[in-house]
Design a protein around this nucleic acid. Structure first.
Length: 552
RNA sequence: GCCCUCGUAGCUCAGUGGAUAGAGCAUCCCCCUCCUAAGGGGAGGGUCACACGUUCGAUUCGUGUCGAGGGCGCCA
């Protein structure tokens, strides 16, 4: 409908010899019903170039507007808004569209089945996932679902930093615990991990247990001084642990990439050699530096430390080069904002390689910190992890659905307060249940009707004329654009907002109107409308990875 | 000191270069002989942090100030 009205306005503007392109025409959904279905500020935009009063221009535009079978009336309002009112039949078409498309309603092919990779979570295998990882998991998975709904071929990827200093800290922590050392012992490694889970690993190691993670199976040697065995066992143990966290959060990855694999395949060295060959490196203080300042960084960065090892920087560049070589012309990295500084560096490294990677590749979506509250106080510790709140704590306490919703429902660049009491509440305080309840209520009505929902596709919708019915149909009509914009803006939270509003329209309608009435045409029309609403709620909840229950 | 994000109702958050800035909670008043009250209707509550610019029009864009958080490692 939007393109249609845009076309009408373009033609009208052309007849006024105004220089107007289709792209420059803005159509809005007015906030108030008295302002119609769509509104344009075109007359006000043209006021300056045409040197005329906006209202006069609006009148001329309306006079020049081609006739349309979809539009009931056009009005001028306010400073010069042109408001379009659709006729009832064109407002109603959305119901049939939704019922016919079913689960596919809202999906489109704008991604043209091109490959896109979404990398998210990417936690170090040094402990259970925490609430921050949870936010990344919820946002990243929703992004992936959104891109899929917009016709992209999506790969979900998790990158493990299973090498480097943090892993060494893990190893000496497990060793210390296996040797019976307490975490408050003066001898305990200064940068060691102190959560209870380290003790679990130590005990499992001593018991020579076997753990599996992804495609690896590792059996502990039980020999504490066997550093290699402690390392591989501890990493596998924690990867397994994180796998369980992800499973509980209902998130599946297509690919797990290991930093250690970059070393075993020599991609770190070849990347370093390419960077040296690019001429953007130099040696200083026994270290090898990359002149990232050549590419917009505010200072140069060390690639190879004076002790001979790489900083995280070289494997990061090698890893992203590998992504590029795997054919991902589009990559989105979802990370915590504390990793912000890596963006410029990784992009600079990729530019230095000079292999045709675009300057702004890859895309980044960063999320801000999460503060967990309970009983009005900040929760900082979990027994198991020691220094942070784990994702599993939240899932166990407030459910997977509520946790996913709360972590995805906010703009990711705003700090988030996760209120455990609110997420647990089984009232309309809680937007998750509010939305799910709308879905369940519709299911219940349809079940009591006991008819075949498929027959509603051809229901005569003419009886749908009440204001709350019109409002609901408008809301349903907005869904496809919401899905498309959410993907363009990489903003999953907008789906959550939309669903809340859609559910509110439904609840309001439900309380005001009886559906299972005696008059058959009225009954079928209303059932068709709520069945369409049910479908949209279901499709939207699916994008968030939240279930759409039939009963509550 | 420099860089990034944020600042909207008592609280948690939406929103927008345009019409009277919205929702939920909290406070107050109503609504189940009726398809699920995990719901609905209504009232009150705002200097859109502050200042100055751009604009016919700024809460929205720009600059600055203040406030919150993060980053500025040969940690990741």
């Amino acid at each position: 409908m939007k393109p249609h009205i845009t076309q009408l306005l373009t033609q009208a503007a052309a007849s006024l010899s105004a220089d107007v392109t289709v792209e420059s025409i803005i159509l809005d959904r007015p906030k108030s019903a008295e302002h119609g279905d769509f509104s344009s500020n075109l007359a006000m935009q043209l006021a300056k170039p045409l040197r005329q009063n906006p209202r006069a221009i609006a009148e001329a535009l309306i006079a020049a507007l081609p006739k349309s079978e979809y539009i009931a009336k056009v009005e001028i309002a306010g400073a010069g808004f042109i408001n379009f009112f659709l006729n009832a039949a064109s407002q109603q078409t959305i119901v049939g569209e939704i019922l016919n498309a079913g689960d596919a309603f809202g999906r489109n092919d704008s991604g043209k089945h091109e490959k896109v990779q979404v990398e998210f979570v990417s936690a170090n295998p040094t402990g259970p996932l925490h609430v921050g990882h949870g936010r990344g998991a919820a946002v990243g998975d929703c992004l992936a679902r959104l891109l899929d709904a917009n016709g992209w071929d999506v790969t979900r990827e998790f990158y493990y930093n299973d090498a480097g200093a943090q892993i060494e800290n893990l190893v000496i922590s497990v060793q210390a615990r296996a040797q019976g050392m307490a975490t408050d012992d003066a001898q305990f490694p200064e940068n060691g991990y102190r959560g209870d889970y380290i003790m679990d690993i130590a005990e499992a190691f001593l018991a020579k247990q076997t753990v599996t993670a992804d495609d690896m199976i590792v059996t502990a040697s039980g020999n504490v001084s066997d550093v290699e065995s402690v390392r591989t066992f501890s990493v596998a143990y924690l990867r397994h642990e994180q796998d369980l966290d992800l499973k509980a959060f209902q998130i599946k990855f297509d690919v797990f990439s290991l930093e250690s694999a970059l070393y075993s395949t020599g991609k770190d060295e070849s990347t370093e050699q390419s960077l040296i060959a690019s001429g953007h490196t130099y040696e200083e203080g026994d270290a090898m530096w990359l002149k990232t300042t050549d590419f917009g960084d505010d200072k140069d960065r060390v690639m190879r430390k004076s002790d001979g090892g790489y900083t995280y920087f070289v494997p990061d560049v090698a890893y992203h080069l590998d992504k590029w070589n795997r054919g991902f012309k589009r990559v989105i990295n979802e990370q915590g904002a504390d990793h912000h500084s890596t963006i410029t560096r990784v992009r600079a490294g990729l530019q230095a390689l000079n292999v045709g990677i675009p300057q702004a590749w890859p895309d980044y979506v960063l999320h801000q910190m999460v503060t967990v509250m309970r009983g009005g106080e900040e929760v900082k510790l979990s027994k198991r992890a020691g220094s942070y709140v784990t994702l599993r704590d939240l899932i166990d306490e407030v459910s997977c659905d509520a946790t996913r919703y709360f972590l995805a429902a906010r703009r990711s660049d705003s700090q988030l307060i996760f209120d455990i009491d609110l997420a647990r509440a089984q009232t309309n305080d809680n937007p998750v249940y509010y939305i799910q309840y709308a879905h369940a209520r519709i299911c219940s009505v349809l079940a009591q009707w006991a008819g075949d929902v498929a027959t509603l596709k051809v229901a005569d919708l003419a009886p749908l004329s009440a204001p709350n019915e019109t409002k609901l149909m408008q809301r349903l009509s907005d869904y496809t654009e919401v899905v498309s914009n959410a993907a363009t803006d990489l903003a999953p939270y907008t789906i959550a907002n939309y669903l809340k509003e859609c559910a509110a329209d439904l609840h309001s309608y439900y309380n005001d109107t009886k559906f299972l009435v005696d008059d058959l045409p009225t009954k079928l029309a209303r059932l068709a409308l709520i069945a369409a609403t049910q479908q949209v709620l279901k499709n939207g909840l699916h994008l968030l990875g939240v279930s759409a229950p039939h009963k509550m």
